[in-house]
Write a protein that binds this DNA or RNA. Structure first.
Lengths: 335, 335
DNA sequence: CTGTTAGCGCATTCAC
DNA sequence: GTGAATGCGCTAACAG
């Protein structure tokens, strides 16, 4: 049995409310009483039950982070950013993984309606289906902030990067480097961020007067990685295979790299790859990979900050939208 | 205001206890009453308050995972494993990051004494200092399971890999490949797993009659990565620089790779690298890296499973110890 | 300054 | 089969 506020009150022959106030350092308690209470609490290693207080104060000090996965370095860094501000605020971070499955996302959000957490940060799962489960959450009054993988139609705060622009810039960069047949590797037809990046890719073609070959837009959305590998392999075995590849997310960027290895294609002589990826990964590759790097840590931090602003000041942030800049980083070859 | 059990009782003109029982599908409630209650609950989108029930039942359905960081792919995979079993058990995973700082670890564990979670999974932070904070947790009756980075002296369940053996095998492999001057890159003098891997490294020297040069054992334990980089660089600039490197964790393995790039050292001609790392990383490198790969996902899963066994059956698992095998994986060169 | 009282939402006796 | 009462641990009026 754990020691409670009541135990302390009994031992000290005072009222529980006095103990409660003393522990919260209320101004209406005398210094000496506080001393006694504090001493007794320390002696018994008293630890307040957070959920009892939560019941009363209607604050759980928990926030949820709902993610597709955590293998990717983007989401790892985002968790770091989120955790860093949560730690400051003395909040706790409950992590949920959807594995990019809508059914899981549904059941997770369904559960979150209960008041288990004070707010939710999320990056949506890929897949078809509406957003009723998200609206259900909102209807329960649970504040929500999207980051990276957002749903445009849902009225909630959003933290994103300049996906259209970076898709454009990445493509432009390859074109300027001399690539003439460009491929776009995606993982989804339905995710907004990927659609935007693809549009940037297409826009660059338009601006630079390059034709678009639809065969070159490949969706690696198979759960079986081997299939995705084959899909990219087939692309690179075409007679008029691309000499430039835009990897729209880290997974496919590295996938392209692996396939090139497998086919013994020279990078960048045969194929030039430019992709969304974390710098640490890029630094290991040889030849070095030009990357579009998202400020993942900052995005997590920003999203969490907006959430806490909502929580604390009860401000309605549902129409807020923060756009952070991705960076296109080219590394010098060391060969 | 959320709809509670009481609201339903009022609306249906029945007692709250009846509603409570009906919702839990108690045998002592008639089928028709259950129907009515369930219908009404659904209609109002009733969601039970988990913390109210927690107060009564003394179960929070939360477990904590305390980690040094989440950048590394080892811990990402471990979280995946943990989450997968937690999801099955309808438990929630609260993630805490120590950033390898003992003071943070202390404050986190201190907080966890409160009963916020039903159990704790942890991989300890590096650094000097005792383990009173861990014992304090145990004294509060919070079950704890260590994984990977354990503390031998603490009486708690432990899930580890065969660190001594894999340290030996890694070194042996390099020796057999022809490396004669071996370096061991570590990140800590105090972590058990690293000490074991180092001992395996030393043992291999003994077995194969190779001298050990203490200068070759480098600790990259600086918070500033640039300093660690310099440290390894200095090592590789020695006149009798190593021609074989054992990277004891992913971070230093990739670091060694980067430094070799920087110094334009040929791998494996000039220096052969073999390190603990995730396969995905290894697959990207060229020339391919021979790795010791820990079953991170399985470790997380195993640790969580042990924790739940303790939680459910109230079995004392404090002397349990599970040793999983790491794999030494060599990739064929594609050059 | 301190104590009494009344919940927070739910689950569990124990009557009826 | 149902309901009234009690309490989980804590906080917040409101008295005194």
């Amino acid at each position: 049995m754990n020691v409670t506020i009541k135990k302390i009150a009994d031992e000290l022959q005072i009222a529980v409310s006095t103990v409660s106030k003393a522990l919260r350092d209320s101004y209406e308690i005398s210094a000496e009483t506080k001393q006694k209470v504090l001493e007794c609490a320390k002696r018994h290693d008293y630890t307040p039950n957070p959920y009892a207080s939560s019941l009363k104060r209607r604050i759980t000090a928990n926030i949820a982070v709902v993610l597709p996965e955590v293998a990717d370095s983007f989401f790892s860094a985002a968790i770091n950013g989120i955790e860093s501000v949560a730690y400051e605020k003395k909040y706790h971070v409950v992590v949920y993984l959807t594995h990019d499955r809508k059914d899981r996302e549904h059941s997770i959000l369904h559960d979150l309606r209960s008041g288990r957490v004070d707010g939710v940060l999320m990056s949506v799962a890929d897949g078809p289906g509406g957003s009723e489960h998200i609206n259900d959450l909102a209807n329960k009054g649970v504040p929500l902030v999207f980051f990276d993988r957002i749903i445009e139609d849902v009225r909630a705060a959003k933290v994103v990067t300049d996906d259209y622009d970076s898709g454009f810039k990445a493509t432009e960069h390859l074109i300027k480097k001399g690539s003439t047949r460009l491929s776009f590797l995606s993982i989804s037809k339905s995710l907004t961020i990927l659609d935007l990046r693809l549009r940037g890719f297409l826009k660059a073609h338009e601006v630079y007067g390059l034709p678009v070959n639809k065969e070159m837009i490949v969706h690696c959305d198979d759960n079986d990685e081997a299939n995705n590998f084959e899909r990219v392999k087939k692309l690179l075995e075409l007679k008029d295979r691309p000499n430039g590849i835009v990897g729209s997310v880290e997974k496919v960027t590295t996938l392209a790299y692996s396939v090139c290895r497998d086919l013994k294609l020279k990078i960048p002589e045969d194929v030039r790859i430019l992709g969304f990826a974390h710098l640490q990964i890029a630094a290991l590759l040889d030849p070095p990979l030009t990357t579009v790097t998202q400020p993942a840590f900052e995005m997590g931090k920003a999203a969490a900050t907006i959430l806490f602003k909502t929580l604390e000041k009860k401000i309605d942030s549902r129409s807020e939208r923060l756009v952070l800049q991705s960076e296109l980083i080219e590394r010098a070859s060391t060969r």
